[in-house]
C-alpha cells in the first residue's frame, strides 16, 4: 500500500504548467504563485483562469459558443422551475462579407469588436451576451417581459445603426443588425435546440423582410375556429348519428350486422 501522503500532495514542480501560464499571461492574468499562496489555492486559481478562458471568445471578449450553450441549457431548466419569461435574441451583422471584402479582415475584426462592446453596453449585467458564430451574436435576457424584450431589441438595433466604427485612420463604417428572438418555452418538455431553432427562424425572417429589423416570435393562435370545429365532427357527426340510430337496432340485430351496415 502506498503511503497516503504521496497521493494527496501536489508537487507543483512536477506539473507542466508552462502552457497554462502562458495562456493566462496572454489574457493579462497573473500566473505566478504568490508569496504565501498554498499549492492548492494556486492550482485552483490556475484552473479557474483556464475555465474562464475556455468560455470566452478571444476576439471580442464576449462569451463564446460553449458559454452561450451552457447558459441556454441552464435557462431552460430554470424556466421550467420558475415559469420566468426568458428571451433569446440572435443578432446577425447585415452584409458583413462586404466589409471584409472591401476593407479587409482586420476591419472586419474591428467591426466585430465594436459591435460586441456596443451589445454589452445595451443590456443589464444579468444578461448574457455571446459571440455565437462568425458575425452572429446571441443575447439571453432572463426576467424579460414581452414588451421589455422588444424595447431592448429595438434599442440594440438603433444603437448599432447609429454607431460609427473606425476601421482605419479617417475611415469609419456603419453597419446594421438583423435580430430574431424567441421566448423560452415554459414547459419541461422542450429543449435548447428547439428554442434556438425558433429564434433562428425569426432571424431568418428579419433577414428575409429586408434586414436592419427585428422579428420576435408571436404567441401562436391556439383557439379553435368555427371552420376547424365544422371539419372536426362534420363527417363524424353523420357517422355517429348513423351508428346511434343503429345502436337502437342492436337489440334486434346481431352486432356484426351493425358493423357491416356502418362500413357499407
Amino acid at each position: 500500500m502506498a503511503a497516503p501522503t504521496d497521493s494527496r500532495l501536489i508537487e507543483l514542480h512536477a506539473l507542466q504548467l508552462d502552457d497554462a501560464r502562458a495562456l493566462l499571461e496572454h489574457d493579462a492574468k497573473s500566473s505566478r504563485q504568490e508569496a504565501g499562496e498554498s499549492p492548492t489555492a494556486y492550482l485552483q486559481r490556475v484552473l479557474d483562469g483556464l475555465c474562464e478562458l475556455s468560455l470566452k471568445d478571444p476576439l471580442t471578449g464576449l462569451g463564446n459558443r460553449r458559454h452561450f450553450r451552457s447558459v441556454l441549457e441552464r435557462s431552460i431548466e430554470a424556466v421550467a422551475r420558475s415559469g420566468d419569461s426568458v428571451l433569446l435574441l440572435l443578432l446577425d451583422i447585415d452584409h458583413f462579407k462586404t466589409i471584409n471584402d472591401t476593407h479587409g479582415h482586420l476591419a472586419g475584426d474591428q467591426v466585430l469588436q465594436s459591435i460586441a462592446g456596443c451589445l454589452a453596453g445595451c443590456v443589464r449585467p444579468m444578461d448574457t451576451v455571446a459571440r455565437y458564430g462568425g458575425e452572429e451574436f446571441a443575447v439571453i435576457l432572463p426576467n424579460c417581459r414581452p414588451l421589455f424584450g422588444r424595447a431592448v431589441a429595438e434599442r440594440i438595433r438603433q444603437t448599432v445603426e447609429s454607431l460609427p466604427i473606425a476601421v482605419a485612420p479617417l475611415l469609419s463604417v456603419q453597419v446594421t443588425l438583423s435580430i430574431g428572438g424567441a421566448y423560452a418555452p415554459e414547459w419541461v418538455r422542450s429543449t435548447a435546440d428547439l428554442w434556438l431553432e425558433r429564434a433562428d427562424q425569426q432571424l431568418y425572417r428579419a433577414k428575409f423582410e429586408g434586414r436592419n429589423r427585428i422579428s420576435l416570435e408571436q404567441p401562436q393562435e391556439l383557439s379553435v375556429s368555427a371552420e376547424e370545429k365544422g371539419l372536426l365532427f362534420g363527417q363524424l357527426g353523420l357517422d355517429e348519428a348513423a351508428a346511434t340510430g343503429m345502436a337502437s337496432d342492436v337489440s334486434h340485430d346481431a352486432q356484426g350486422n351493425v358493423t357491416n351496415r356502418v362500413n357499407a
Binding site: 474562464e52 462569451g63 454589452a120 449585467p125
Partner: peptide, 11 residues
C-alpha cells in the same frame, strides 16, 4: 464588458 460574462468560476 466583463460584466456580461457571468463569472464561470468562483460562485
Amino acid at each position: 464588458m466583463n460584466d456580461v460574462l457571468s463569472p464561470p468560476a468562483g460562485n
